[in-house]
């Protein structure tokens, strides 16, 4: 069975008709059950209320954050699923990286608490009204938010730790006898492969 390019006409048409109520919104079907929506950040709460109240979008699947330092913006993507329409709406908004503050949607979707806390921890983006912006995963981390693009993990490791050459005496003794982790000629197979 080959899937149709978009859901049954009545579903897609009614959904798009409903979304017309939000000003400045653009829609694009990204797959049979994927509707991409781009809208200004200030209208997102209105969109979520509309979707939850009138189209059965009760499930907030995830909130994803993408860092775009060249445009000095964070992109927030709200993935919403309706158990009735079986269509995923991905609402994309952009907010300035500085000061990096946005509104929590916890009052509409309780799963937002986890995702907002996670984004706050990893990207340093603050959500006003979220129930808990405390640390969760990086409990004792006091460096910059690590998921930001300017955070270079390798440079941080090089700066933080001293590299040590691990050559204990016992290994040197074994290697002197031709052992250790070196490959000996007699270990190489006849077909030349290691």
């Amino acid at each position: 069975m080959k899937l149709a390019a978009s859901p049954p006409n009545n579903v897609s048409a009614s959904l798009e008709f409903l979304l017309q109520e939000i000003p400045g919104l653009r829609t694009k079907w990204a797959g049979p059950r994927r509707l991409r929506v781009d809208l200004p950040a200030e209208t997102l709460p209105a969109l979520l209320e509309l979707l939850k109240g009138r189209a059965g979008y009760v499930h907030l699947s995830a909130i994803s954050c993408v860092d775009w330092p060249t445009q000095n913006e964070f992109e927030l993507v709200y993935h919403l699923w309706s158990y009735e329409l079986n269509v995923l709406v991905m609402a994309h908004i952009r907010i300035p990286r500085d000061p990096g503050v946005y509104l929590s949607v916890y009052d509409l979707y309780h799963p937002a608490a986890f995702f907002e806390r996670d984004i706050h921890e990893m990207f340093g983006l603050y959500f006003e009204g979220s129930p808990d912006m405390g640390k969760f995963i990086l409990t004792e981390w006091d460096g910059p938010p690590p998921m930001r693009k300017e955070f270079d993990s390798e440079a941080w490791v090089m700066n933080q730790f001293e590299w040590q050459d691990y050559r204990p005496d016992w290994l040197a003794e074994i290697e002197a006898k031709g052992g250790g982790i070196t490959t000996r000629p007699q270990d190489i197979r006849k077909d030349g492969k290691p």
Partner: peptide, 16 residues
């Protein structure tokens, strides 16, 4: 990848 976000089901079940 420019960004990968993993949405594990346990993120809900094991926390709230």
């Amino acid at each position: 990848p420019y960004r990968v976000h993993v949405r594990g089901p346990s993120a809900m079940h094991a926390v709230q």
